[in-house]
């Protein structure tokens, strides 16, 4: 389950990417991946350029429950963010994905969710998940640090908080890589972003 997205020669394994999108906070790693295996989550086949997550309530134990709420289906568009040749090691590029300001950064070491020839290109929404501070990139340890209360997120580990107070991982932008052209595409965001009630309008 801990397989990462990775375009194989421009062709994307759609099923695999669907699953990853569905799991969300994937960075927990192999062992937890077992527990995170969605129960009651249905992965739906859709065209390649969309990421769909759907939640199905398990209501066997519930008698006379009201009809479950409409499950949210978030469809993220596929947007070109950058070309791998634009990237310098450990220097984040700021790009726009939907209405999010995102960082695209080549970390110089293999990263969870990393793409590109070295598996080290990742993208994040650099807003602290604690109180919304604008994060600063620390090139010495590949962490993003908040200037308000000093929460720190490790970009090599899927935005896991290594110190501080946020209740979620840093929202990671899921990427696809076109080996032929070197283009990097954003295809979704795996966490709720600070300040939002939903990342994008559900369908």
């Amino acid at each position: 389950m801990s397989e990462q997205t990775g375009g194989k020669g421009g062709k994307v394994d759609s099923t695999r990417r669907m699953i990853i999108a569905a799991i969300g906070g994937l960075a927990v790693g192999g062992a937890l991946g077992y527990f995170l295996t969605p129960r009651g989550v249905e992965v739906k086949e859709v065209p390649v350029t969309e990421t769909v997550t759907r939640t199905v309530a398990r209501t066997e134990t519930v008698t006379a429950a009201p009809p479950p709420s409409q499950p949210p289906i978030l469809r993220y568009p596929r947007v070109r963010l950058a070309n791998v040749r634009d990237l310098r090691p450990r220097e984040p590029l700021t790009r726009q994905y939907l209405n999010f300001r995102v960082w695209v950064v080549k970390l110089g070491e293999r990263a969870v969710g990393g793409i590109g020839p070295d598996g080290d290109v990742v993208a994040f929404v650099p807003i602290c998940t604690h109180m919304g501070g604008a994060l600063a990139f620390n090139r010495n340890n590949n962490c993003a640090v908040c200037p308000i209360h000093y929460s720190q997120f490790d970009l090599t580990r899927g935005g896991k908080m290594v110190s501080g107070h946020g209740t979620q991982f840093l929202p990671q932008v899921m990427l696809e890589f076109d080996e032929r052209t070197g283009d990097i595409y954003a295809v979704g965001i795996n966490q709720l972003v600070y300040g939002r009630v939903k990342n994008i309008e559900g369908v």
Partner: peptide, 26 residues
């Protein structure tokens, strides 16, 4: 007003609610 959440807006009475703060249960 949850359309106006900004950094530190909890001081003004507009907290951001993260996914960890809401749970579905029975």
């Amino acid at each position: 007003d949850f359309t106006r959440i900004e950094p530190l807006s909890h001081y003004l009475g507009i907290p951001w609610i993260s996914e960890s703060m809401v749970v579905r249960t029975i």
